[in-house]
Nucleic acid binder design. Structure first.
Lengths: 187, 187
DNA sequence: TTTGCAATTTGACTATTGTCAAAAGCAATA
DNA sequence: TATTGCTTTTGACAATAGTCAAATTGCAAA
């Protein structure tokens, strides 16, 4: 739990009381490679913190799996759409490695918001940061060529390339595996 | 101001006190077509609510203007990256039509957060909703073809096509103007 | 080591999109 | 009505990326 708290501290410094309340609300979760946190069609009622491990988010499009997201150490993870709206998730979240996570239900989180203004502030700040990050990914996706996107991945998140198979990465980059293979051979 | 309050009400219902505090903090802004809310290289210290009008966000890439965003009635507008981090904006925000806006400084907003937990809650909820919206745009950008992206635009936000010139729209879709013109002639 | 399977690369060809240049359409205005 | 400037369309060709199939590589189980 120390790792989670330290990470939270990077967003906003909480009081001892708030930290104690959080500590009582998170549950540790140890899951094997291949396990699913969220599956398509089901409502996702939890927010996860990934302490150790890796996972991918993917959905099905015309029979093919589209990987749209990777999560690693110190990421907050959920099907945001489902968690926020309460509607069934359109995507799946699956562990790529055996992982250690901490989970909190939406219900408990809402309760914490009511009792601790500062926890809601922390989450507001986390959303801000995640928003900016997503905006950057969006600009990358929309306005860069396949080669530029791969180069950005090499530069900004090389750990993805080291820990994830090419098939998933090419899907994540929105290009075919063959094209990615050719890009790599050219660089 | 009524329109802003009604819009906020759709996210979270504020008390009379909080509304009064907001009312005292927002400033009306009437600007002509072509005016800039934010320019590249300058820190954006305000959040805007667009009551009437339209605008685009764009940045320069290798001499070309890339339009990455449009704002219309009832949108919250800022250079999120700059507003949140305090760093200089990389993009410009320019009015496409004469517009009526309400503006609040980051400083005032932070003060409101401290005095009114419920205002911070409202903003947290707005961020959630904007996050989901951006996530959808991201998936569209990364995994759909040019034709599909244009069709999605027609279906989800037809007002954009009615009010914005093709040159901006093609840039927004991440395709050349000629390709967009050909897509339109084929449909 | 060898075998078997999955991941990755390569080849040949097709489809999509981009680029540059020219033409057509449209609207304000002199 | 003619002129001007801007937006949109069209044509010809080049570049980029996708698809399908086959070869190669890498790695783990036997």
């Amino acid at each position: 739990m120390q790792q989670l708290f330290q990470h939270l501290n990077g967003f906003y410094k909480l009081s001892q009381e708030a930290l104690a309340a959080l500590e009582a609300s998170f549950e540790e979760l140890i899951l094997p490679k291949g396990a699913f946190l969220v599956t398509h069609g089901n409502v996702c009622r939890h927010m996860y913190f990934l302490q150790k491990g890796a996972l991918r988010g993917f959905y099905n499009l015309e029979g093919k799996e589209i990987t749209h997201w990777f999560g690693f150490e110190n990421d907050f993870i959920t099907s945001f759409h489902s968690f926020i709206t309460g509607e069934p998730a359109v995507e799946n979240l699956q562990l790529l490695e055996g992982s250690i996570l901490y989970s909190i239900s939406k219900e408990k989180l809402t309760g914490l918001f009511n009792r601790h203004h500062e926890i809601e502030r922390l989450v507001r700040i986390v959303y801000e940061k995640y928003y900016i990050r997503l905006e950057e990914r969006y600009v990358n996706a929309q306005f860069k060529t396949a080669t530029e996107r791969y180069e950005a991945l090499l530069k900004n998140t090389p750990h993805i390339i080291e820990r994830v198979s090419l098939g998933y990465i090419s899907s994540y980059l929105g290009i075919s595996q063959e094209t990615l293979s050719r890009i790599r051979s050219r660089l």
